[in-house]
């Protein structure tokens, strides 16, 4: 689901994309889902889009 967001923003430069992903997750995602994502990112899940992972670390 998060990867879908990252894919939609893939045309942006890295910084802009990560900022927007963070904003989107903040605005629409339940904190528990954010935490799960953060955990996945922290665990280095390689199915995560790199920008999504970056955003997760910035949440």
């Amino acid at each position: 689901m998060g990867n879908d967001i990252a894919r939609q923003l893939a045309h942006l430069d890295e910084e802009e994309a990560v900022t927007r992903i963070v904003a989107h997750l903040d605005r629409f995602w339940d904190p528990r889902m954010r935490r799960t994502l953060q955990a996945l990112a922290a665990a280095g899940d390689d199915t995560l889009d790199p920008r999504l992972a970056a955003a997760a670390r910035r949440l």
């Binding site: 629409f28 995602w29 339940d30 904190p31 889902m33």
Partner: peptide, 9 residues
Amino acid sequence: PEPGLRIPN
């Protein structure tokens, strides 16, 4: 103050 779960969630 935080969003909740959507149906698929």
